[in-house]
């Protein structure tokens, strides 16, 4: 694996260098169009498959729940375990929740078209979303969703090219809506603290990048649209 890692790293560096040094020869336009079309078709097919698989997972979750409910009716021992299970499900984000909270709206600003400014500071990056979410957790948020995607214990954010992906390759596109359940005042005060999100707030002033929030007495966050698999971690003892 060390060899693989070295090869990966070396390829990464060499390719990066090559890409900065050379311009690729343009393909014949017909080939290029065919390749572009094939790539986009693959994305559409895989996205359809992704939706179908999530629907299958959700249908199976409903069947499992029905089996558990029936089992709990038959056995008091099962009933006790199931009460604990429901508690952990709520914590894990497998159940929809509602309550008071805060809605945060975020959108790209205006491209300054300035050759001296190539920072892309006018766009919303996944790190901005993650900074906001981290601050919400720090201020007592009990549940968070972004554009209808529940943030669960295993959620990670990353770029696939220009795409922001979370939770099983869900593509997030702007404008972004972050919904947090919790005490609206505490959450709003956390975001309003001038020491927090200082860089994002400064970009909001410079580039007109949209950052605002609204308190609500009733908001809802959906359940996570898949489930969890643990293959390597084992209970201790």
């Amino acid at each position: 694996m060390t060899v693989l890692a070295s090869v990966s790293l070396a390829t990464f560096l060499v390719t990066g260098l090559a890409a900065t040094q050379f311009r690729s020869q343009p393909l014949a336009s017909s080939n290029r169009l065919a390749r572009d079309e094939a790539l986009r078709q693959s994305v559409n097919q895989l996205s359809d498959q992704n939706r179908a698989l999530k629907a299958r997972v959700q249908a199976l979750q409903a069947q499992v729940k029905a089996g558990e409910d029936e089992s709990a009716r038959r056995s008091s021992a099962v009933q006790q375990v199931k009460a604990l299970l429901d508690e952990q499900r709520a914590i894990a984000g497998l159940l929809a929740l509602h309550g008071p909270g805060l809605t945060i709206l975020l959108h790209d600003g205006v491209d300054p078209n300035d050759p001296a400014d190539r920072s892309l500071g006018w766009t919303v990056h996944y790190q901005d979303l993650q900074d906001i979410i981290s601050l919400l957790w720090a201020n007592g948020a009990e549940a968070v969703a972004v554009n209808g995607q529940r943030i669960v214990p295993t959620t990670s954010f990353h770029y696939a090219g220009v795409n922001i992906l979370i939770n099983n390759a869900n593509r997030l596109t702007g404008p972004y809506t972050v919904t947090a359940l919790g005490d609206p005042s505490t959450l709003a005060n956390g975001l309003g603290d001038p020491d927090q999100l200082a860089e994002l707030k400064s970009r909001s002033r410079i580039y007109g990048l949209g950052l605002s929030w609204l308190r609500s007495t009733r908001l809802s966050v959906p359940a996570y649209d898949a489930t969890f698999l643990v293959k390597n971690a084992q209970p201790l003892g």
């Binding site: 572009d36 790539l39 895989l46 992704n50 299958r56 997972v57 696939a160 090219g161 390759a169």
Partner: peptide
């Protein structure tokens, strides 16, 4: 196309997990 190719890679991985 690089973004699209990386998206394909992530979709494949996610679908396998699902």
């Amino acid at each position: 196309n690089t973004s699209v190719a990386l998206l394909i890679n992530d979709l494949n991985r996610a679908n396998n997990q699902l």
